[in-house]
Design a protein around this nucleic acid. Structure first.
Lengths: 213, 213
DNA sequence: TGTACATCAGTGAACGCGCGTTCACTGATGTAC
DNA sequence: TGTACATCAGTGAACGCGCGTTCACTGATGTAC
């Protein structure tokens, strides 16, 4: 190896380098302009090299999508870590984290949710996506509490929470939420938090007064 | 012309035929597999012919997206037409129409909301998208009523309504709402209606009792 | 009603492009002895 | 500690492909007179 010049025949960790390059490629070119050759070039390697690490271009995209779900979870956790520990505020924080991730990783978000290119049957991707979904359920269950209406009600709560956060993210990252920006006296986070709060399941949203009636 | 064989040198309305072909192409190949040559072939015309009707492939995609917004509005109106005329049920009906459209036009929906290919600056597309947005505002305003909290509140109501319907549609059309399907005793429509109802602005959702306090 | 002619809307051959992928190869690495 | 050798991870040339687009053309249409 030749650590001083940075050039060496064997790369060391080309797989990782290609993943990093793939993210940049995705961010700059979008899904529609993503090419394997572009990733190889960004990683400083010949365009035939990736074949040793990924079966084909969709293999790289699948790995990127899987990593995306891990990072989506991390973004939600990051917001939760700095929020108060009530189930309701944890729910809202997770929603804001979902939005953070979408806005910061537009093309990756679309790759994960609106593309057919990744192989969603692959174990790696299925595991990461399932882990994210499990966390969503956990957050909703914490705020909804044990509900006598059972699992079907919980699943509708989950769907509502996910759809609200996902819809906001998807629309925001195509600049379709600009009409919200002119909020007087509220920060962008506060506006989104207020909207996300509307999808808190009603088991927990009822006030003490209305609950007693 | 040669109406009996169906073959003639001049097509008659190739622009319309290309739009129809484009929708089929979109449905069968998706955005990522969409080609101008494919559309020309479907329309039974040489692959150079479309140049006389659309500047380039993005021109056709732009026209398809614009028509998509018109049809999205029509889908919402169709649901509203068969629903009761209360603002709340009209709101829910419109949401179900939004879902109908997304599920029935998956790739077109993605073209309209998750692609950079159409020219969103074109007058045609801007007009259709703006018309759809205006209708959304009208529906939300009808259900929210005159709210002393003013326009910022209305815009948040609009954002919540749109995000909920859009999130449900986007997730449903990538098969991510399957966990909802096992609903006991509720039709799919009823499940979605219940979820959409959660995004009804609170101005109208308050019961008569709680409003009086 | 007929004719000349401009215009329109097609055809099909050809171009250049960038892509994914394959291939024979070669340099680097690590291990058995 | 050396050496032989298998294996791994790169290179770069080449391939075929389908694409969007251009071009000279031609058939059809419609209108002026």
């Amino acid at each position: 190896m030749n650590e001083h010049t940075g050039t060496r025949y064997h790369h060391g960790d080309l797989r990782k380098a290609l993943m990093d390059a793939g993210e940049v490629e995705l961010a700059e070119k979008g899904i529609e302009g993503f090419t394997l050759r572009g990733c190889a070039k960004r990683a400083g390697v010949s365009h035939a090299a990736p074949a040793h690490h990924f079966k084909d271009v969709n293999g790289l995209l699948t790995a990127l999508a899987a990593e995306g779900f891990d990072r989506l979870v991390a973004a939600m956790r990051a917001r939760q870590a700095v929020a108060k520990q009530t189930p309701r505020l944890q729910f809202i924080a997770a929603g804001l984290g979902y939005l953070d991730f979408g806005k910061a990783n537009k093309a990756l978000f679309r790759l994960m949710f609106s593309s057919h290119k990744p192989d969603f049957g692959s174990g790696e991707l299925k595991r990461s996506a399932a882990a994210a979904f499990d966390i969503l359920i956990e957050i909703v269950r914490n705020v909804a509490g044990a509900d006598p209406r059972g699992n079907a009600k919980l699943m509708r709560d989950v769907a509502a929470a996910w759809a609200m956060a996902h819809g906001l993210a998807d629309l925001a990252l195509s600049n379709r939420m600009k009409f919200l920006d002119a909020a007087p006296g509220l920060s962008e986070d506060e506006v989104y938090a207020e909207i996300i709060a509307r999808s808190v399941p009603d088991g927990a949203k009822r006030t003490a007064r209305s609950r007693k009636t």
